[in-house]
Design a protein around this nucleic acid. Structure first.
Lengths: 220, 220, 220, 220
DNA sequence: CATGAATGAGGATTCATTCAT
DNA sequence: TATGAATGAATCCTCATTCAT
């Protein structure tokens, strides 16, 4: 038995894909993340990446056959990591068995808090994913697959479960409910970290308000 | 006196920036919109735009000094148009005087429906704005200015007004309330037209659900 | 009616493919021929070609999408031109009707002399063809097609005709005869212009000897 | 005293340059021969050679200082081996003393048959020599030296001898005679193994025809 | 106004070669 | 001896922009 705090923390470290990486390679990835995030994949030049990584341009291509492969090597693991909480086999069982009493609200709170921390620690990477998804079918594909195979099914079960319990309104379809929740959560993070990162956010309060909003809307 | 239906319709046609445009220029803009939306500004080549427009490469540069000027000539008016409803002097007065009885919900409904139609008719253009805003400070600036000077003040007044009336919960700050509403509305449209345009949407219902969600959240 | 001298001269100028060519383009082709011949296609750099042509490197790619296209635009017409004498409809008829009295020897003499002049005037180009054929299937294909469809059939008719007349030995198959003749003629030219261009050749005598050799071998 | 059969067989194994070669080195040479023959020296990359040889890139440069040295280490021995029959001191003496009765024809036959076997067993290597000679002065030099110092003198003596005997026509200069013979023989092999290796050759007959052609020409 | 040839800087990528392990 | 990561010059090619017609 594990308390949910720990559970979700666990789920983050899904893959250690940073193994077998030379120091130069690590510097390349770091530089690439920065520059891709700053100017976008298409406008980033491998020569600039090499310069910032303190590496010869050729070194990039020794490790990544193409510039695109470099992008994907950065972006692919992100998708999985972002959906990580939904990967754990135990996740949904935990929810139902040990913590059902706490209800959907508590589950939501944990989830959003956890993903909030994740996003906070991976802003440039997520910027890249958001930007480049639009133009790279491979990324869309990967995202779609993870979402429809891993995230959606579990999310659906959750929503159905709490709808049956009468905790969630059931005049919204499951899909609609999920869409609204995800929109609100993701929207918060995008606004918080990407659109207006410089606004003087009171994160704790804003997080709580967001959860309340999802719960009750804005009407009194 | 004007009924709100007409009011909002009016607000759409703010600027006729399609004046004094040669047919070739129009074809260039059309082609540019398509290609910028398809592959992004950085990956779009002026030669491809010229080809699709059925124009010589030089012709583009006769009308737009640089490729970036072409982008801005496309993007700039969009920002104003998207915020159009908030531009009309009469807008807020209308709200307060003639139609206060209908309440925030009705106002919201009109606004969202109207912007929904607008987005529906300008998907590629909005794709471009969303994508390129990240990398072009000029666009961010323009957006920020319009938002803080035009949209935000009026939105604030509205929210304050309805909070005072007790129609909106006031444990949320005005800013937070606005953020949540805009997030939900924009999130819907982005999901609807950009992320999942091929999903079999029941637009009317989804629109209504979104409004209800803003109002009441998802809890029963 | 045309005397065979003129006939063969005519056949040389098959296509004027140098039309619609800008002066820069002409200089590019000239430079490319020189450099391809000097160092081979693979070792020739487009930047060097541009330099020698007095043109920006980009200009090359405005006219030829790829370096290979530049090569083919040079090589392709050569193949046809080299086989030119066999293209004329009237060629073989001329041989049979008006000049049969002169026999195979005279025909051979005219042919070899004519091709000798052609080769003499196109040494670098032929060097390129010989070298690059080995590595470019497109060139092999083109050569094969021209040879099997145009050259071989007419050559066969000629040899058969003179074998029937008893002028040529018929213990050699037609194919073998053709191979031996072409080998000897081509071999002469390759030796003369490519292998040992600096040897003090007495061209007229050597040409005549080659013809005699084909006729009588080297035994007394 | 040695019968000529054996003599010529002997001449083949002139140098055992395969000594002191590590297994890796042998694999490198084998891979290099294949790849040089397939795509030409300039288009062959050391990394591809290393890969096909199952060796690290660095290993190639441990044995051969440069890519070119690798080429020369492959090509140089070929030149000597191809001219091998003319190297043996005893060769010409054999011809004159023991076997003069058999005449030039028999000598030619032996020579051509022997070289035919050699070429047959070394097609890729000869392809490389033919291709690269054009661009590498070192190879030309080596070839020229071997040819003028070893092959030509002996060949000249032979031809002079048989001209004096009245067996060969003497209205052809010695040089011309040699050129014609070599052209015909080499031309056959190039056609046989390089230009048209897939043609259904009747080697024995074609070889014999070639010899007859050299002897008697093609006229009846 | 419109054209399209020309430009040259810059892009991604390749490759022979070096060197620390 | 063998490795393979690292190099950086060189390669082919693209592209925004200019300008003479």
């Amino acid at each position: 038995m594990m308390d949910p705090q720990k559970l979700l923390q666990e789920l983050l470290k899904i893959s250690d894909d940073d193994k077998d990486i030379t120091p130069k390679q690590a510097k390349i990835i770091q530089a690439a993340i920065e520059i891709f995030a700053e100017k976008g994949y298409a406008s980033a030049s491998t020569s600039e990446i090499a310069k910032r990584a303190g590496v010869a341009e050729g070194t990039i291509f020794r490790h990544y056959k193409t510039k695109k492969e470099l992008l994907l090597s950065i972006v692919s693991p992100m998708i999985i990591k972002f959906a990580a909480p939904f990967f754990a086999e135990t996740f949904i069982r935990q929810v139902f068995k040990d913590h059902e009493d706490k209800g959907f609200e508590e589950l939501l709170r944990k989830l959003i808090q956890n993903r909030y921390e994740f996003v906070k620690n991976n802003v440039p990477l997520l910027k890249i994913v958001l930007q480049e998804m639009a133009f790279h079918p491979e990324i869309q594909q990967a995202y779609k697959q993870v979402f429809t195979e891993k995230v959606l099914p579990k999310f659906k079960k959750m929503v159905e479960y709490y709808q049956d319990k009468g905790e969630l309104r059931n005049d919204f379809s499951v899909d609609t409910t999920i869409r609204l929740v995800i929109n609100t959560a993701v929207g918060f993070m995008v606004t918080r970290f990407i659109v207006m990162p410089d606004y003087p956010w009171d994160d704790e309060k804003e997080l709580e308000n967001t959860i309340q909003y999802i719960k009750d809307g804005i009407f009194s």
